[in-house]
Computed example of a mutant assay.
Amino acid sequence: MSRDRAQDKAEFAEFVAARSGALHRAAYLMVGETSLAQDLVQEALAKTYAAWPRLRDKGNAEAYARKAITTTAISWFRRKGWSHERSTAAPPDRATPGHADQVTQSAWLWECLLALPVRQRAAIVLRYYEDLTEAQTAETMGCAVGTVKSQVSAGLAKLRQQLGDDADVLPLDTLTTGR
């Protein structure tokens, strides 16, 4: 094995050790299932490893892997018959007090997020969970900045509609004034 190839393998292993947790969290937020998120990260890491020798700046490896996660998730959702979403007609009742109320509220918000179409969910996750700019989100999703803006706007509008009078449980007003 050549020195360059051995160095590439070592650098990639270091990248995986350092960033796979963050990549898995982002994948989970996009697809909503642990095992599916693991599959998604593995596929993205395989694509990143294949491209590793061509990456000029290894500092961009995470952006490359995140883009692979996003585009793969979107393509999985577009396939006919793919039905891993667990959306419900109505959010669960949130009447229990204390900690149980917080857990129920979290699950309820999660169900609302999962009910969004995958591109809207991906745009919201990338913009507000991953804290990417609109331009970075557009690059990751492989679309125009205007598309990111419309996907985020439509997604937030649907979340506000689902949340109704409880829209104050999320800082939606501050989300729309982000970068």
Rank of each mutant, 00 (worst) to 15 (best):
L159G: 02
A135P: 06
A135R: 11
L116C: 05
V145C: 06
Q136W: 04
L114D: 05
K149M: 11
A167F: 07
G155Y: 01
A167W: 14
L116N: 05
D168P: 04
K158V: 08
A123Y: 02
R121H: 04
L113Y: 04
G155D: 08
S153T: 15
D131Y: 04
G164C: 10
L163S: 11
A138S: 11
L159Y: 02
L156H: 02
V118M: 12
A157K: 15
Q136N: 10
L116R: 00
Q162K: 12
Q151P: 02
R121F: 04
Q162A: 15
L116M: 03
R119I: 10
L114C: 06
L126P: 00
D168T: 10
L113F: 11
V118T: 05
Q151T: 05
A138M: 03
S150W: 14
E134L: 10
K158S: 11
T133D: 09
L159S: 00
L159K: 00
A122N: 00
M141N: 07
G146H: 02
A138V: 03
I124P: 05
Q162M: 10
K158G: 03
A154F: 01
T140L: 09
A135G: 06
L159T: 05
E134N: 10
L113N: 00
E130H: 04
G146E: 00
D165Q: 15
P117A: 12
V125T: 14
A115K: 06
D131F: 04
T133I: 02
Q161A: 14
Q161P: 02
D166R: 13
V148Y: 12
L113I: 09
T133Y: 07
L114R: 10
S150Y: 13
L113S: 03
T147G: 09
E134P: 04
S150C: 02
A123Q: 07
D166F: 15
R160D: 07
G164N: 09
L132Y: 15
L126H: 06
Y129M: 05
R121T: 09
G164H: 10
K158L: 13
V152W: 01
L114M: 08
T137K: 03
Y129V: 04
V148D: 06
L132T: 12
C112I: 08
Y128H: 15
E130W: 10
A154K: 11
Q151M: 09
K149W: 09
T140D: 06
V152S: 12
L132F: 13
V118Q: 06
V125G: 11
D166M: 11
A144G: 02
L132G: 08
Q162P: 00
C112Y: 05
M141V: 07
A138E: 06
Q151W: 15
E130Q: 08
Q136C: 05
A122W: 00
C112W: 06
A115R: 03
G155H: 01
K158W: 14
L159C: 01
T133K: 08
L126A: 03
A157Q: 15
A144K: 04
R119P: 00
A115N: 10
T133C: 01
M141L: 13
T140F: 09
G164S: 12
V148T: 09
V152H: 07
L163R: 01
A138G: 08
C112K: 05
L114P: 00
D168K: 13
T133S: 15
A135Q: 12
D166E: 14
S153G: 14
K158C: 08
R121Y: 01
Q151A: 06
Y129A: 04
E134D: 08
L163H: 01
